[in-house]
Each structure stands twice: as C-alpha cells, then as structure tokens.
Design a protein around this nucleic acid. Structure first.
Length: 287
DNA sequence: CGTGGGCCTGTCTA
DNA sequence: ATAGACAGGCCCA
C-alpha cells in the first residue's frame, strides 16, 4: 500500500507503549489483531503487509486521522511542536476495546516489560494458538475464557492483585451487564463515568481505554510521565498551588489527576490525546 | 467528598 | 549475584 505522503511512523507507533503485543522480527512487525496475525513493514513510501487488507490496516493504525490538521490544532507551544517534529507520524492505534480494557487494568503499577509479560502469559494460557511464518502467536482471550477462569489461574500469569479485577471485570463483560461498544456513542465524560464502575478501572485506566480503543481523541491520560512533562515544561501554565502539590514524588490524588486531565483537554482541545502521546513519548525517550 | 496506606510481583539498579 | 527500590494506580478504611 502506497502511503502517498500520508505521515506514518510505524516503529514509533508500535514502540511508544500504547500497545503491548507487537514484536519485531528482522524488519517485520508481527502482531495479533482480532484472530489474525498482522505482518507489516515500512519501506520508503510503501507499507507492506501480509494477511490483512489495506482498509483494515488503514483503520487499525488510524491513518485516516488528518495528522496535519491535528498538528495545527494541538501545536500550541514550542514543547509540543518539538515532540511533533521528533516523532512525526506517530499514530493512535484503534485497539479492540476489550483487549485494551484488560491490558490497562493489568498495567497499573507496572512497567512496560512487565505488562507485556502478563498479557503474553494470559494469551498463551487462555487464547488460541495461531502458527504463522513458523512462529507461534496467540489470540487475546475472549471474555468468556477469563470469566470462567479461576482467580488463582489468572494470578499465575503474574497478575498479582490485578487477577481479581480482571476476573470480575471479565464476568461483567461476559454476562453482558456491561457493554463496551455503546460507549462510543456517549460523550466523553459520560463514557468515562460508566467505565469507573468496573473493578480495577480508575481515572487513568478509563482515559486510556477511551483514547486507545473507543475513539475519544480528547481523552488525556495522566500517568507519571505526563505528570513529569507538565511539571517540567508546563508549570507556568498551571496554578502555582497545583504545581507545588504535584512536585512531591508520590502519585497523584484524584483531585490532582482531574486538574491535570482538565488542563490537558482545555489547553490542547479536541485532539488532546494526540498531544498526550507525543509528549509522553518525548519525555520517555529524552527525559 | 477528600485523603492516606497497602498492595502482587517482574524489572531495574547498585 | 542478590537485595531493595520502583513500576504507565486502584481500592478501601
């Protein structure tokens, strides 16, 4: 598929920590999307892939998001402009909401390698094996599989205290007492409120699920890295009291989270989520 | 309604 | 090598 000048940086998009189940073998990226293995690489202006059609690829990687327009809207200061330039072509992937939800419930209080480890274990144990190119892949387990698993078998995947959250949330999804897809139709605030009712889902997890899988590009997840960005580069735009409070090493209180989250959404606007990803990645790579 | 302590366990760092 | 700190927060008192 020719990109025809559409900005897209495959490596940064897959490395920046929004998805956890992609691996690079040689110069090909492999990832399981739904029940099919994607194999994809970038070569000049060409996006080469195997086992998937162009429309699916375009949709999954959000290539129809107008990055130039987004950039002109969020590019409000030197800091974000620098990040946009450095990682130009970074896209927000449209993940499956179910997989995204479980992934970010697992992600609390863990670093990225550990998150990968947990999700890999879950998929090996409860997903379906798919062999492709002589390599083994596993689909992400269906809600039914996790809802019928025991908490201890989930914990064996390295989930620790998250095992019971994953179990209880899976049960709610499996039983149909909670539906993810309809949240797309709700306004951001309302969808977020619904997500809070799930065990293991707080402010941060809800924002990640909304941004990475439910199309709410105005969501602005605040984690320790985003807190650092705001502290290091946006302190002048924040209330002094708030800056003082978040300067302490501990995590954010609910109030502090909400204030930083609102700042991001008000300041960057309808595509605040894109700003968050560029700033987040920039802070992680360069400090 | 706001706040603080506890938490499973895999990496990272010294 | 091996212990101790830290990790993309959330829940409960």
């Amino acid at each position: 598929m020719r990109l025809g000048g559409v900005p897209f940086n495959l490596d940064v998009t897959l490395c920046c920590g929004q998805v956890f189940r992609w691996d690079k073998v040689g110069d090909w990226w492999y990832g399981v999307v739904g029940d099919c293995v994607f194999k994809i690489r970038r070569f000049d202006d060409e996006l080469e892939f195997v086992k998937s059609d162009a429309e699916l690829v375009r949709h999954y990687f959000g290539l129809d998001d107008d990055l130039h327009r987004i950039s002109s809207i969020i590019g409000r200061d030197a800091q974000i402009k620098k990040a946009l330039q450095r990682f130009w072509g970074l896209r927000i992937i449209r993940q499956d909401p179910w997989e995204c939800l479980i992934s970010y419930i697992c992600a609390t209080y863990k670093n990225i390698p550990a998150i990968k480890y947990m999700l890999d274990n879950l998929s090996r144990k409860f997903g379906q094996k798919v062999v492709f190119d002589g390599l083994e892949f596993f689909t992400f387990p269906e809600p039914a599989k996790l809802a019928r698993a025991s908490v201890s078998s989930l914990a064996e995947c390295g989930l620790g205290y998250r095992a019971k959250y994953v179990f209880e949330t899976s049960k709610r999804i499996f039983e149909g007492s909670f539906e993810l897809e309809p949240l797309r139709q709700l306004p951001y605030e309302q969808a977020k409120k619904e997500l809070y009712t799930l065990p293991g889902v707080g402010f941060k997890v809800a924002d990640c699920v909304l941004l990475f899988s439910l199309g709410k590009l105005e969501a602005f997840p605040v984690d320790v890295w985003v807190k650092r960005v705001l502290l290091n580069h946006y302190a002048g735009k924040l209330p002094k009291e708030l800056v003082k409070k978040i300067s302490k090493p501990e995590g954010l209180s609910n109030v502090e989270y909400r204030l930083l989250n609102e700042f991001g959404r008000n300041y960057f606007g309808e595509y605040a989520g894109y700003a968050q990803e560029y700033l987040y990645h920039s802070e992680r790579v360069h400090g």
